[in-house]
Write a protein that binds this DNA or RNA. Sequence first.
DNA 1: TAATTATTTATTGTTTTTCGATAATTTCTT
DNA 2: AAGAAATTATCGAAAAACAATAAATAATTA
Lengths: 74, 74
Amino acid sequence: MAIIVQLDVMMAKRKIGLMELAEKISITPANLSILKNNKAKAIRLSTLDEICKALDCQPGDILEYKEDEDGEEN
Amino acid sequence: MAIIVQLDVMMAKRKIGLMELAEKISITPANLSILKNNKAKAIRLSTLDEICKALDCQPGDILEYKEDEDGEEN
DNA sequence: TAATTATTTATTGTTTTTCGATAATTTCTT
DNA sequence: AAGAAATTATCGAAAAACAATAAATAATTA
């Protein structure tokens, strides 16, 4: 797997914490944390939508395709 | 919903048709068509990965957040 | 125009995964 | 140390991917 979810950067830029963002996009902090730390295997476009709206950014600011280095499974 | 899947552009750029891409990423043409025409409600990161790999592009080339115009449901 | 190919749409069933709810744990921060 | 924030884990329900398939529509080509 070489798709990386990079929420940290935009969150820092917007100065918003996980709790606050979670509330804004109506998702539990637990699930947002999973998303934030690349533990999610899929994402609903509606969720991506909420995130982009809340952080005022594009999917490309959050999702990155990185050439497979070794040592990844999935 | 304001997340748009824009596969057409990159496919044209790479001169690859739906059938060929579908085979490359190991998904049925039917399902790829659904994805291509914004009928999908979610996407597996593994699928996004395959697409980026096959089209040699970034998620941001394929996914776009567009401010809600009216007349969309979901 | 007819035949062929590519694409879209629809249906059904299986499997995967999100997501809420919750609790416990760990990591900041003050 | 105490409180807040973040992570991790578990369970169950609902949603959705995806395969397989078939049928319909659009596009291409002979």
